[in-house]
Write a protein that binds this DNA or RNA. Structure first.
Length: 105
DNA sequence: CTTACGGCCCTGG
DNA sequence: ACCAGGGCCGTAA
């Protein structure tokens, strides 16, 4: 079968599972760490494939713009927002800020 | 084989 | 700091 992409998935999922609480990562960063720079979108596609009962912190994955990659009126957006806030993040609009330290002057 | 579409990224205005 | 445009990669039609 497709070894490279299969490995890609495994790596991404593994790294994702290693993401500590209270920390987030961009799709591109995740892909890069997995050894597949430029595969940000594929990471997103992979996230979409994840089962609903997954233990993986998919909510800690956001885009490089520090924004949730979902329209605000969607359910997915709200869920991710809630989870991130639960992790101690502060969401302003559809953008993320560091916990208790947005921009910090 | 061409077209369309993503949980994206980067550069510019 | 915010929005728009173009580009990248893979999968599905």
């Amino acid at each position: 079968m497709n070894q490279p992409i299969d490995r890609f998935k495994s790596q991404v999922l593994h790294i994702l599972s290693e993401i500590p609480k209270g920390e987030c990562i961009a799709y591109g960063e995740l892909a890069k760490l997995a050894g597949f720079p430029g595969y940000a979108r594929q990471v997103g596609s992979l996230m979409k494939k994840l089962p609903k009962d997954t233990k993986l912190p998919w909510h800690r994955v956001i885009n490089a713009q520090k924004r949730i990659s979902f329209p605000e009126n969607t359910d997915a957006y709200l869920r991710q927002k809630e989870r991130l806030e639960q992790e101690g993040w502060v969401i302003v609009g559809n953008k993320l800020s560091l916990n208790k330290n947005p921009t910090k002057k």
